[in-house]
């Protein structure tokens, strides 16, 4: 791709948003960032990766941490800020990439050619997807979805400028359940190209 493009994907758990993001990055031939960015951060800061992964995309604990102005000692928030700095640097360097989660639509707000997308899905389809992916029964899948969505919502709403999943925050909101992952990728890709004026 010639001009820089940044695709920020927010997603409900089990919607396939991660897979959609990965495929779009592959199709467009640009970098894909998810929790794997922690590898680079861990290497750069000389921190154990397992430690970073434990607190990735988690809301801060209500008791046990405090903020003083721009400083916080919440490990969850420090790791979030490390990731925000990482993606800001990548964007400022002019790199094109797809980023999943990390409040990227807010963190990179104002960047030229930022396209923000929120992937949702019908409840049943999401449960089915999680049951198949992690070999869980329905009850466990429901619990897992609820837990992850709750954490994502708290994490997002703590750091972002708007509410998680609020359509006004994104350029495109799409349900992956109607078309399936493959066709959703095509629709999103079409939207991106239209936005960039490439079609």
């Amino acid at each position: 791709m010639g001009e820089q493009v940044i695709i920020a994907i927010g997603r409900e758990y089990g919607s396939g948003g991660h897979e959609i993001g990965e495929r779009i990055a592959k199709e467009l031939g640009i970098h894909f960032y998810d929790r794997s960015m922690l590898d680079e951060i861990a290497k750069d800061k000389d921190i154990e990766i397992e430690y970073l992964e434990k607190y990735d995309e988690k809301p801060r604990k209500l008791f046990g941490s405090r903020r003083v102005g721009a400083y916080t000692n919440s490990i969850e928030e420090i790791i979030a800020e490390m990731q925000f700095e990482y993606i800001r640097d990548k964007a400022d360097e002019g790199e094109s990439f797809v980023i999943v989660g990390r409040c990227a639509e807010s963190v990179l707000e104002g960047h030229k050619n930022l396209i923000s997308i929120f992937v949702t899905g019908h409840r049943d389809a999401r449960i089915k997807r999680i049951m198949n992916k992690y070999h869980l029964n329905e009850q466990d899948a429901v619990v897992k979805i609820k837990r992850h969505d709750k954490h994502r919502k708290q994490y997002h709403n703590r750091h972002a400028n708007g509410k998680w999943g609020d359509s006004r925050l994104y350029d495109l909101c799409i349900s992956s359940s109607d078309l399936g992952v493959e066709k959703t990728v095509n629709v999103v890709e079409f939207f991106i190209k239209e936005r960039l004026g490439e079609n």
Partner: peptide
């Protein structure tokens, strides 16, 4: 808070 934050 500030000290531990700078360290982190």
């Amino acid at each position: 808070v500030v000290g531990t934050s700078v360290a982190a």
